[in-house]
Simulated assay, not measured.
Amino acid sequence: MPLLAALLLGGLSGCASVSDQQAGDPLARVNRVVFSFNENADHYVVKPVATAYTHTVPSPARTAVRNFFSNLGDIGNVANEILQLKGTAATQDIMRLAFNSTFGLGGLIDWATPAGLPKHHEDFGLTLAHYGVPMGPYLMLPLLGPSSVRDSTDFAVESLINPFSYASTVTQLSVDATRVVSKRADLMAASDLLSAAAIDRYAFVRSLYMANRKNESGDNGETDLPNYGNPQ
Rank of each mutant, 00 (worst) to 15 (best):
M1N: 07
L3F: 03
A5N: 15
A6Q: 10
L7D: 04
L7A: 06
L9N: 06
A16L: 06
Q21W: 09
Q21N: 12
P26N: 05
P26T: 00
L27P: 08
A28D: 08
R29Y: 12
R32F: 05
V33F: 01
F37W: 12
F37T: 02
E39N: 13
A41P: 04
D42F: 03
V45I: 15
V45Q: 00
V46R: 08
K47A: 12
V49Q: 03
V49P: 08
A52F: 01
A52L: 11
T54W: 07
T54E: 14
S59L: 14
A61V: 15
T63H: 04
R66W: 13
F68D: 02
S70D: 12
G73K: 08
G76N: 02
E81L: 10
I82L: 11
L85A: 09
K86Y: 08
K86Q: 10
K86N: 08
A90S: 10
A90P: 08
T91S: 14
I94Q: 00
R96W: 12
R96E: 05
A98C: 09
S101A: 12
S101F: 08
S101C: 07
G104F: 09
G104M: 11
G104S: 08
L105P: 10
L108K: 06
L108W: 10
I109E: 01
A112M: 12
G116M: 07
P118K: 08
E122A: 06
D123C: 05
D123F: 00
G125S: 10
G125Q: 03
G125F: 11
L126H: 00
L126N: 00
L128A: 04
L128G: 02
Y131F: 15
Y131K: 09
Y131G: 01
G132C: 00
G132F: 00
P134M: 10
M135S: 15
L139S: 06
M140L: 10
L141D: 04
G145K: 06
S147Y: 00
S148C: 02
D151M: 11
S152G: 02
S152N: 00
A156V: 04
E158H: 01
S159C: 06
L160S: 07
L160W: 15
I161M: 08
N162T: 06
P163H: 12
S165P: 04
S168F: 07
T171P: 08
T171Q: 02
Q172K: 15
S174G: 01
D176N: 13
R184A: 14
D186G: 13
M188Q: 14
A196S: 13
A196L: 15
A198Y: 06
I199T: 14
F204M: 11
F204Q: 07
S207T: 13
S207E: 15
Y209M: 00
M210I: 15
N212Y: 05
N215A: 14
E216Y: 03
E216I: 08
S217R: 13
S217H: 03
G218P: 10
G218C: 01
G221A: 15
D224C: 12
L225E: 14
L225H: 11
G229N: 07
G229V: 09
P231Q: 00
P231M: 04
